[in-house]
Simulated scan of single mutants.
Amino acid sequence: MSKTIGQLDPAAALDGTETVEVEQAGVSARTTVDDIAARAGAASVGRLAGINDQTGTAYTVAAADAGKDIRCTNAAAIALNLDIEATSGITAGFWCLFSQGGAGAVTATALAGVDLRAPNGAATTQQDDPRGLEYLGGDVWRVL
């Protein structure tokens, strides 16, 4: 039986096990919500796209970090560099997390030409402290 979005089981949709029938141009296929998210290039519903472990004292956020947690584990302070769109290739709507996995605080740092908005601070305060990053477009980043 074909289901519309309103007929999906919310619990099954969130854990990725709900199956839906998709029809486009007369071709029908059965798939899961996770499959749809993967084909759209997005992280599965309610899940990180992965973890990017960084051990150095500086790292520049890349397009491949979309939906991931950039976990920084150095004992010294870490600069998480945010670059302009023309250099990074990151476009509006990009988001990721960064977290302090070691003793060193992680600070979101604006490179030349970047407008960084961090009303609640741009740095982690203790081990396991996560922060969100969102690229708004127009070389504007926001720490969440």
Rank of each mutant, 00 (worst) to 15 (best):
M1V: 08
M1G: 11
M1N: 14
S2R: 12
T4M: 06
T4Y: 11
G6E: 08
L8N: 03
L8M: 14
L8C: 09
D9L: 09
P10S: 15
P10H: 15
A11E: 14
A12W: 03
L14M: 13
L14K: 11
T17M: 03
E18K: 07
T19E: 08
V20Y: 00
E21F: 14
V22I: 12
G26E: 11
R30I: 14
R30V: 14
R30D: 11
T31I: 10
T31G: 06
T31L: 11
T32E: 07
T32C: 09
T32G: 12
V33Q: 13
V33G: 09
V33D: 13
I36M: 09
R39T: 15
G41D: 06
G41P: 05
A42M: 13
A43Y: 04
S44P: 15
S44L: 15
L48M: 08
L48S: 10
A49S: 13
N52A: 13
T57P: 05
Y59E: 01
Y59K: 04
V61P: 13
A64V: 08
D65H: 07
D65E: 01
A66Y: 11
K68W: 01
D69H: 03
I70R: 01
N74I: 00
A75M: 04
A75E: 13
A77M: 01
L80R: 02
L80F: 00
N81Q: 06
N81S: 09
N81C: 09
L82A: 01
D83I: 03
D83S: 07
I84A: 02
I84E: 03
I84D: 08
A86D: 00
G89K: 00
G89Q: 02
I90N: 01
I90Y: 08
T91W: 12
T91A: 06
T91Y: 15
T91C: 03
G93F: 05
G93K: 05
F94N: 01
F94I: 02
C96Y: 10
C96N: 02
L97P: 12
F98H: 03
Q100N: 09
Q100L: 03
G102W: 00
G104K: 04
A105T: 04
V106R: 00
T107W: 01
T107C: 13
T109N: 11
A110I: 08
A110Q: 05
V114G: 06
V114Y: 02
D115S: 14
L116F: 00
A118N: 09
A118R: 03
A118T: 09
N120G: 10
N120H: 11
G121S: 03
A122W: 07
T124R: 01
Q126D: 10
Q127L: 08
Q127N: 13
D128G: 04
G132V: 02
G132K: 09
L133T: 01
E134H: 15
G137K: 11
G138T: 09
W141G: 02
R142T: 15
L144H: 10
